[in-house]
Amino acid sequence: MHGYVFQFRPIFQELPLLLSGALVTIHISILTLFFSFIVGTIGALCRLSRFRWLNVAAKWYVEFIRNTPLLVQLFFIYFGFSQINIEVPNYLAGLIGLVVNNGAYLTEIVRAGIEAIHKGQFEAGLSLGLSFPQLMRYVVFPQAFRVIYPPLCNQFIGIILWSSLVSTIAVEDLALRGKELASTTFRCFETYAVVTLVYVVMTLTISGVLKVLGRRFFSRPA
């Protein structure tokens, strides 16, 4: 390392640029979480359904996503769109890829949450005359959500970190801004060190906040 002096100043001067990327990372992550939760809930209900074909279809969806890399899924969707000549903004392609990916993991998380509920709860609800949607809304989901919350938070952190891959399909998130900055300043190591720091700070802050929120909303008098 003779003669190499670390220079962080040029990086910190461009902090607003990096932060604008961080903002994109955050909103694509939040949108991903929202839509994946919907996909995951549908998937979980399919997995728990008495219709065998729904169950099997959901099972294979989950297995396929879990055993193939996110990057390949992103490329499949992104380059796939251009193969069939549909123009999709990069952001949307990235979002779709992230949602399809996380939807599988959320299917398992939501399913575990529902299965954690004692069978008697379903029986009590049904015997009072509740319909299936009412049962889900008033009895099952309030209880399932308690179980779902911690793994859901972990999944969200994962989404934030793995969303960095959308930089490979030219979405202007934190990772891509970092890459741009590195190529303009030629200070590659310093740039990526700072970008990594921003990711770590984002992750730790968000996970801390989620933990506090969890404690506030989920402690019932014992």
């Binding site: 890459k179 590195a182 992750t203």
Partner: peptide, 11 residues
């Protein structure tokens, strides 16, 4: 664990 693998690769 709290940083993206992509960043680790670049670093």
């Amino acid at each position: 664990r709290d940083s993206p693998l992509l960043m680790q690769l670049y670093l």
